[in-house]
């Protein structure tokens, strides 16, 4: 007997087999990427040796290398970096997406910006060494957009502070009478990270133990090196006599503005003894 509708049956069968073959072809050609050598990834290296300072930000320069010897282009490939210091996020950066065609090897040069302004209040990394926690990852799509993939790695990198030392040597200060007032001179040391460039102005302010201003001064220091200098304060006669006659705790506030407007402040309490100073 003649069976009607076999054409429709054939169409459904062919469509089903076609979809299955398309699936298998895409799956198998994608799996070829896991064959050693087909997908090459040169992971980016992030450490302080690649740091540079520009416009108030620290930039970490690195390179991501990707080679594609598979059967499908890798599209929308991007590198993302998140960095935090003591739980404070200083970077959340993603490179613009690139395409790595079949048979191509691409190197993506990356400058990861780290915004240190949020650290100014905590002092972490500014005056103290800190562990920077990095999360570095790559993400992309392949197989004509049918497959998305990604990998990320979290690690900690110890980083020296931007300002390893900033000291005012009160113990070696000299207090001299200058007319009706006193002139108080003492050595200071400021050391800044080697990748910092340019000059900065430091402001040193000293308060006595009741919070009254003793004196203040400013000095221009070159960045990226160790600087030894002398700070001179003009002190009123009354304050000079007070300092010359009794030991007390003084508060030394050091304000420093790094290029780009990143202002940092360090405040320490120093015991002042006129007999020893």
């Amino acid at each position: 007997m003649q069976v009607k509708g076999r054409g429709a049956l054939l169409i459904v069968r062919i469509a089903g087999i076609g979809a299955l073959l398309a699936f298998m072809a895409l799956a198998l050609t994608t799996m070829a990427l896991v064959i050693p050598g087909n997908l090459e990834i040169l992971p980016p290296e992030l450490d302080a040796t690649s740091a540079r300072f520009q416009d108030g930000r620290v930039y970490l320069d690195t390179t991501l290398g990707v080679g594609n010897n598979g059967y499908h282009d890798i599209t929308d490939l991007s590198l993302f970096v998140q960095a935090s210091v003591a739980g404070i996020q200083v970077s959340d950066y993603r490179t613009p997406p690139v395409t790595v065609s079949v048979g191509q090897r691409t190197f993506i040069n990356v400058s990861v910006p780290m915004d240190l302004a949020p650290l100014a209040s905590s002092g972490a990394l500014i005056f103290l060494p800190a562990n920077v926690e990095f999360t570095v990852g790559v993400a992309g799509t392949t197989t004509r957009g049918f497959i998305s993939f990604g990998a990320s790695f979290t690690f900690q990198q110890p980083v020296d502070p931007l300002i390893p030392q900033a000291n005012l040597d009160l113990a070696n200060g000299t207090l001299a009478v200058n007319g009706t007032a006193f002139q108080w001179t003492m050595p200071y040391t400021v050391e800044t990270a080697s990748f910092l460039q340019g000059n900065t102005t430091i402001r040193i302010t000293i308060f006595n133990e009741t919070g009254v201003l003793v004196g203040n001064t400013t000095a221009v220091v070159p960045l990226g090196t160790l600087v030894n200098g002398n700070a001179t304060f003009q002190v009123t006669a009354a304050m000079g006599l007070d300092l010359a006659t009794r030991p007390q705790n003084l508060t030394v506030r050091l304000e420093l503005v790094l290029p780009g407007g990143l202002g940092v402040t360090d405040e320490t309490v120093v015991a002042w003894d006129p007999g020893g100073g």
């Binding site: 197989t143 497959i147 993939f149 990998a151």
Partner: peptide, 13 residues
């Protein structure tokens, strides 16, 4: 290392 693979679009086929 955290890895993810999203191939749900491929499974649609």
């Amino acid at each position: 290392v955290s890895l993810f693979l999203d191939f749900h679009l491929l499974l649609y086929i």
